[in-house]
Amino acid sequence: MKTCHTVLRYCATALLLPLSMAAQDNPQPPVMDATAHRQAVEGARKRLQNAWREFGERNARGEMAPDIFSLRVQPKILTTGEMEGLMKQAQAATFPEPDVVRSVNGKLNVTLNVFKARNQIGSDPVYLRSYNGKLVGPTLRCRPGGHSLHHGEQQPRSRTRHGGCDEHAAWV
């Protein structure tokens, strides 16, 4: 019904490596065999359900005071010395913007590869599912372009090794 100014083309690729393929100098979590893994997941589900049951019982008895949303709670004022200590924890001396992808002539093309990547939060190394290997996805900026476009008729599809929406999508 409407003319459209921006088509957001997004290409998500789920690329999840078996953990054993990771390089040796990249310490990775230990790999479990399938049966042990299934049992571990079942165990976590049961503990999570138990945690909810316990929370529910205590909360219903009024033992879990709700979060306090009060403007009356006065913040602690950091001293200059405490501030110096805090600044030592600052991970970046400047403000880090995420990568930016902009629309061109009413079209924005972006490929998001999903894979586990090593990053650092504070001083902790982490190995987490990611968009393009980062801890935050790129900022997508759509600018009104005035182009009138029709919605494509492409169907969902999967691919094996080549082709697809971005030839540069790497299988790393």
């Binding site: 998500a12 789920a14 969902p156 599809r157 999967s158």
Partner: peptide, 26 residues
């Protein structure tokens, strides 16, 4: 379809194309 469809699933080692048309008066 391939717009803001959260019922789509992208399993490992597969690829999904999306095309999301943002209305001009959005």
């Amino acid at each position: 379809g391939i717009s803001d469809n959260v019922l789509l699933e992208i399993p490992p080692r597969s690829e999904q194309k999306y095309e999301i048309v943002i209305p001009k008066d959005h």
